[in-house]
Design a protein around this nucleic acid. Structure first.
Lengths: 145, 145
DNA sequence: ATGCCACTTCAAGTCAACTTGAGGTCAAGC
DNA sequence: GCTTGACCTCAAGTTGACTTGAAGTGGCAT
């Protein structure tokens, strides 16, 4: 099977070429060679990019993701890390759920002012005490175009 | 009741003075005056900061939050916006939940390699298709220290 | 053979939400 | 009155994940 050029990889992975170059520079992917100046990629890079997308979606940083690949390129996924991340996400889900319910209540609440609504005030206290509010997590950014 | 100085406000709101100056500059809060060079704040600013923290936790940007205050300073919270945000959060919660379950499965899965696990492959497809993966949302950052 | 233009490199820019640093001021305690 | 140090301003730095721009190159179709 013919190797892919950067644009083909980009199309299959749904990423711009600039991102692929950036990922290569970061050691997240590797090209198999060059045709003149142009990088050529093995088709398997697409699967690897899917793996990277998964990691990003799960809230791992690119650096963390890079660490999940053995030097030979095979994914060495640490089950403990995965479990820990799942637990993180679980906490985040709980916080978001509480917040969502609070927002819904605030939207529906008929108290003359939100400030007079006990539910809203409770939400407010939770938010400012940091009980809601996430730490050092970056949500994945998938830019439009 | 005595007006507060910036450090007192910071203590009550759990924010450093630099953040308060930054918020003032952005028009999110206002000081009531100066004692010499030093800003003085009305105690009500603490409640306003709680409101801001709530907005941040819900995923609103500072700019969006600023737009939620009428020029006179009273919160003019748009119920439709709140409902929309709650729906956003709901979608996000669903995505995170799917992802969390996938991660847990991947951590527990006994297939010789993740690549041979159908559940994992499904997760991979979802991640790279963008079905998981959030858009243009920035999670609140509350730094340690 | 020639020219187009998709690709290349490398540096710099972007975005959000702050933080940090240098250099300055002034209210208050001694 | 003098020192102290908490506060001030303004500019620049930080972080992560990219994007953008300028300038160059070379594969491939004509």
């Amino acid at each position: 099977m013919r190797d892919l050029d950067i644009t083909e990889v980009g199309q299959r992975a749904g990423l711009p070429a600039s991102t692929l170059r950036f990922y290569e520079e970061k050691g997240l992917i590797a090209s198999v060679g060059r045709r003149g100046l142009k990088r050529t990629f093995d088709a398997r890079v697409v699967e690897r990019l899917a793996l990277i997308a998964l990691g990003r979606a799960a809230g791992f940083s690119l650096e963390e993701i890079a660490a999940m690949f053995a030097p030979d390129g095979s994914p060495r996924i640490d089950r403990e890390l995965l479990t820990a991340k799942a637990a993180d996400m679980d906490r985040q889900i709980r916080r978001l759920t509480a917040l969502r319910d609070g927002l819904r209540h605030a939207a529906a609440c008929t108290a003359p002012s939100h400030m007079e609504c006990p539910t809203f005030r409770r939400l407010l206290r939770a938010a400012s005490s940091g009980a809601v509010g996430e730490r050092k997590k970056r949500a994945p950014q998938r830019r439009a175009k």
